[in-house]
Each structure stands twice: as structure tokens, then as C-alpha cells.
Simulated scan of single mutants.
Amino acid sequence: MMADKEFELHDVVEMKKAHPCGTNEWTIIRMGMDIRIKCNGCKHSVMIPRKDFSKKMKRVIAKAEK
């Protein structure tokens, strides 16, 4: 895995495609076999298989507060 593709729970990530509401910043709210992310614009959440999420994520914008 590439170094910039390392993500943890509650990280803010940028996706390759923007959400229909206009933003492409998402917060990771659940991790497992699937990853649930919540749009930082309209607060809509979606569940994506981990493999697909790794492909669709561009970069980590902000690491989670420890």
C-alpha cells in the first residue's frame, strides 16, 4: 500500500470524484470489511467495500485527533 493511502477512523479524506452536493471531503466514520464515510458538505453517509474505497480515495486531508 502507498504511504499516502494510510487512513484511520475519523480521518478526513479527499475522494477522486466530488459528491453531488459539491464537496469531495469525507470523514471516515466506520471501518471494517466495508468503510462508511460521511460527506462533510451535506452529511450523507455511504458504505463502500474497503477495496473500492482504496481505489476511489485521493488523499488524507486531516488525520484524526488522538
Rank of each mutant, 00 (worst) to 15 (best):
K66E: 15
K43Q: 12
I48H: 03
A62R: 14
W26K: 00
K56D: 14
N40W: 05
A3S: 13
K16L: 14
V60K: 04
K38C: 10
L9Y: 07
S54W: 04
I35C: 01
M2F: 09
A62M: 07
F7N: 01
I28Q: 02
K43M: 10
C21Y: 03
F7V: 15
H19N: 11
V46L: 11
V60F: 05
F53D: 01
R59Y: 09
G22N: 06
T27S: 09
H10V: 00
G32A: 04
P20W: 03
M1Q: 10
R30V: 09
R50N: 09
A64Y: 02
I35W: 03
F7Y: 15
K63R: 15
I37C: 00
I37T: 06
A64H: 09
K43E: 12
K63V: 12
D52Q: 11
K38S: 10
T23Y: 03
A64K: 07
E6N: 14
K43R: 13
C39M: 06
G41E: 02
E14A: 08
L9V: 05
E8T: 08
H10P: 01
E8W: 05
K51I: 14
G41N: 06
M15S: 06
D4P: 12
P20T: 02
K16A: 03
I61P: 00
A64C: 07
H19T: 07
M47N: 09
D11K: 03
T23L: 10
V12P: 02
G41T: 05
K63F: 12
L9T: 04
M33W: 08
G32P: 10
K55W: 08
M33E: 15
C39H: 03
S45R: 04
E8P: 01
R30L: 11
K38D: 01
G41D: 05
E25F: 13
K43Y: 11
N40M: 15
I37W: 00
I29D: 03
K5P: 00
M33S: 15
M1E: 13
I28K: 01
M1G: 15
A62D: 07
I48G: 01
H44Q: 10
V46E: 12
P49H: 06
G32F: 05
T27N: 06
R36T: 15
E65M: 05
C42F: 03
K51H: 13
D52P: 00
A64M: 02
K58R: 13
E25W: 08
E6I: 10
T27Q: 14
R50A: 14
L9R: 01
K55N: 13
E14H: 00
I35N: 00
I28V: 15
K56T: 09
V60Y: 04
E14C: 03
I35S: 01
N24K: 14
C42Q: 05
K56H: 11
F53I: 07
D4W: 01
C39N: 06
A64D: 10
K63Q: 11
